[in-house]
Amino acid sequence: MQPRLVRLTVWAAVLGLAACKPKEAPAPPRPDPADAAQRAAAAFVHCVEGGNAACIRTGLPHGAFDAFVLLGWLATGSPVAILDALSRELVAHSDPRTVQGRFVREVERLSGPLRGAECSPVGAQELAPMVTQLAQATKARLEAIGMASADMMRVVEGLAAEAAEGLEGAFLVRMSCKREPYQLYLAMVPEGPRYSAIGLMPYLPRFLGGDEAQIDAAQALRSKSLGISGAAAPVPDGTVDRYLPIPMEEF
């Protein structure tokens, strides 16, 4: 047999064998990462409801979501609060233990209200694309309100870079609850094949896709989970009332 014919025969045999080989079952479709993140968020809330201290995993990019939250604050917060507290917040942000400790305390605080709140996931957005949008909005806002110093712009760029890198593949899952806290956004980051919670926020600004109309501000302001309800300071003796705190004799 000529060599060329031998080669053809061998190839034909190989192809024939291949054709006779039983077909492998098609690989199962990869689960939708958004669905997986929502399932993980629901599991996290159940874990928190149960008061399990091990709900929060360590060694995850909590700082990246903290950077995202700080950018959101600069984009929407009150200037009085920003001017007053930004230095302190940046110091806290630069310490990963402080960032994670804050998340732990927030989760502990919410564990009571979440119990019986019947929260379930209603949607998930990828976080990484939101970071670019948020950074642009933050810069534009700081310029508009006269707070766009060179240092401030570097802070924004640094926070945006940190958030973009650490939140690659992460999702923001919106949880809707029948009772307070009524809604909650959970940041879920991929950790191998599963997702873990790295932070939470009570609402999302409209320019990032949040539906602010769904928040009942009256209800939310009264909620214990917000923690700003309470008794007013007593009206000083001799003054007219809370609205007119001047001495009665001057009125």
């Binding site: 604050w73 507290a85 009256a218 302001l221 923690g227």
Partner: peptide, 20 residues
């Protein structure tokens, strides 16, 4: 205004500042 106070309440909780 009430919506604004809500946001300021959230800000107060998140960043440990007083509601103005």
């Amino acid at each position: 205004f009430r919506r604004w106070w809500f946001e300021l309440g959230v800000e107060s909780r998140t960043h440990a500042v007083e509601v103005p």
